[in-house]
């Protein structure tokens, strides 16, 4: 099974992780919400798959392009 890494589109902080490891997700599903500069930006997956691992936790700082989750596709 192939793996796909989900990356953060921006620099900010992980506010909430809304999916769980093992969840089956499909293209467009939101898996976590980042916040920066008073904005909440949902992270959406762009493929169908299963969440294998989160590489960040709630409250963690993330930078643009950082890998934040792993999907099995």
């Amino acid at each position: 099974m192939a793996e796909e890494r989900v990356r953060s589109e921006m620099t900010g902080k992980v506010w909430k992780i809304i999916a769980s490891v093992g969840d089956e997700v499909s293209d467009g599903d939101e898996i976590m919400i980042l916040e920066s500069m008073k904005m909440e930006i949902p992270v959406m997956v762009d493929t169908d798959g299963t969440i294998k691992e989160f590489l960040v936790g709630e409250g963690d700082e993330v930078t643009e392009d950082q890998e934040i989750a792993v999907l099995e596709v």
Binding site: E9, M10, T11, E64
Partner: peptide
């Protein structure tokens, strides 16, 4: 604004 001009995502730094 400190942000990406197309995606409008924050760009602190």
């Amino acid at each position: 604004y400190a942000e990406d001009p197309i995606k409008f995502l924050p760009s602190p730094g």
